[in-house]
């Protein structure tokens, strides 16, 4: 089974990082300026497709998406 943290971290790097900024599971993504709150939607849609879940808009907040760890916690909740 793929490691969810690794899958999400890799997606974030490919999608948002255009230089050699390092991204760990704790790196602040939105408050750290790596993921612009605007572009969060593709991350949300990626997670929904990948894990066959649906994350309601009021849960897909910049806070809940602010690190790979936080995102994993959120996704786990919906996977149930």
């Amino acid at each position: 089974m793929e490691d969810m943290h690794e899958v999400i971290r890799e997606y974030v790097i490919n999608e948002y990082v255009e230089d050699d900024t390092e991204v760990t599971n704790d790196t602040p993504l939105i408050s750290g300026g790596i993921v612009d709150s605007f572009s969060m939607v593709s991350l949300k849609r990626f997670l929904e497709n990948k894990y066959s879940i649906s994350i309601p808009d009021d849960r897909a907040t910049p806070e809940a998406f602010d690190s790979v760890n936080k995102i994993c916690t959120l996704v786990q909740e919906f996977i149930g």
Binding site: E18, D36, F38, S39, V41, S42, R45, F46, N49
Partner: peptide
Amino acid sequence: MHDTFKHSDMDHLESKLQL
């Protein structure tokens, strides 16, 4: 809904159109 693609990156744009 709003999404972005990397500057002038047509492959990235295409993946967004698919998404």
